[in-house]
Simulated scan of single mutants.
Amino acid sequence: MLCVGNYHYIRTDFKAKYPSIFGFTPSKFKIQLETLSKYGEFISQPELLQKIGQPLKKNYILITFDDGLKEQYEIAKPILDEMGIPFIFFVNSWNFSNQKVSMVHKIHLLRSVLSSEIINRRTALNLSPEENLLAIKHYNYDDTDTAKLKYLLNFKLNFKQLESLIDPLFHEYFDESKVFEELYMTRDMLIDLDKNHNLGSHAHQHIPLGEFDKEIISQDLKDSQLFFNSLLGHKLDAISYPYGSFSACQKVSKIAKENKFKLGFTMERALTADLQEDSLLISRYDANDLPLGKGNLFKENKLFSKPNYRYWYENSAIYQ
């Protein structure tokens, strides 16, 4: 079986006027890794590639980070290297080709200095009862109002609507060029990660790909591979789909395969029993779902006992 843990922010402290992210401190990260090591064997990207089409005869654990943040390279990587634990850092290529901050991070930063209520007042849309439930389920570590706002911003508004809402506010409080330099890895960091097979794509832009037409999905994945091929001299094998929700992943795995990706990661909270069926819809847990995390879905059971296996890939028709 395979358990994949996914992280984003890792900092010494997360103090903010309005807490907007649920990251890990270095000490908590190291303790969680030590705990996870008791349950299975850490696996690398090359080792996982070799197991495509095969049963998984051991209990494996894969550590992943999304978004290509500089703090991941500067804080998490030394801890992982010291402990001898392999990992994959998934990076959006758009940030580097455009020298811009992703909308998702603009929202995170704004929400750290402004209340959800202030931002919500600027929007003209409301969620349906069904969407409210989806929001609460997807953003299960946020309070209800924040979860609804995040869902509205990330899934309900189109990009032009988001720009007109978020960009004026963002530029009122932040210097985008300064944020870019401080927030994201450098190209040299990407090259260094690739040398040890620790690099993956997080698509080109950080958008919920499955919410768009196939042509837009295909172009986004193509642009990502073109960037990495130009930078590194080869395409990447692994991709994690931005947001990772059911709707954000629909239609995407087939197009990912067409763009030469071999491993694809969702945010379906489940274990992967084997890679004999589909290696482009591998499930992942948020790091806060895992032992010692904020939610810890495994309080009563050990990591691999009474497993909840991935289900989305079995409904393959929805991805075509």
Rank of each mutant, 00 (worst) to 15 (best):
Y313N: 09
L183M: 08
H202N: 03
L169S: 04
L221H: 00
I10N: 04
K254R: 13
N132C: 13
S177Q: 15
S93H: 08
D13R: 12
S245P: 01
A273I: 00
L292E: 14
L62M: 09
E131N: 03
L125V: 15
R122H: 15
K100G: 05
R269Q: 10
F89C: 05
P55K: 12
N198M: 11
L183C: 06
D194V: 01
T35F: 02
I282D: 03
L231Q: 04
E71G: 04
A124N: 11
L221S: 04
K70N: 06
N196W: 05
F29H: 08
K70V: 03
D167P: 00
S164P: 00
I191Y: 01
Y241L: 07
W94I: 10
D188P: 00
Y311P: 00
P307Y: 04
N120S: 14
Q205A: 06
K156V: 15
A135F: 07
A287G: 07
L125D: 07
D13S: 13
P46S: 10
V113N: 08
R11N: 11
D223P: 01
N198I: 02
N308T: 12
Y39R: 05
M83E: 06
Q161P: 02
P129F: 08
S245R: 12
F87E: 07
Y139F: 14
I75N: 10
I10L: 12
L133N: 14
K150Y: 06
S279R: 07
S279Y: 03
P208F: 11
S116L: 01
Q45V: 02
E130H: 09
N198Q: 14
R284A: 08
T123P: 00
Y151M: 12
S102C: 11
H234Q: 12
I75R: 13
L127R: 08
K100S: 15
K299W: 02
T144K: 15
R310V: 08
H234E: 10
D237N: 14
Y309F: 15
K222Q: 07
C3V: 12
G244E: 01
A124R: 15
S115C: 04
Y311Q: 14
S279A: 14
D278Q: 14
P307Q: 07
R121G: 00
N59G: 02
S20K: 10
L134R: 13
K294P: 00
T25K: 14
Q250P: 00
P55N: 12
F22K: 15
K148H: 05
F87C: 13
F42T: 05
I318Y: 15
R11V: 02
P26F: 09
G53C: 06
D237K: 13
Y313I: 00
K251C: 04
W312P: 01
F246N: 14
D278V: 03
D237C: 03
N259W: 02
L297I: 03
Q32Y: 04
A124Y: 10
L157Q: 08
E314V: 05
H8M: 06
D145Y: 08
S201P: 01
K28F: 03
E176C: 09
N301D: 08
I88T: 14
K214G: 05
S253T: 00
L134D: 02
T266D: 07
E172F: 11
S27W: 11
S128M: 08
V104Y: 10
N92G: 06
I191P: 01
I216D: 09
N259S: 06
G53R: 13
S283L: 07
H108T: 05
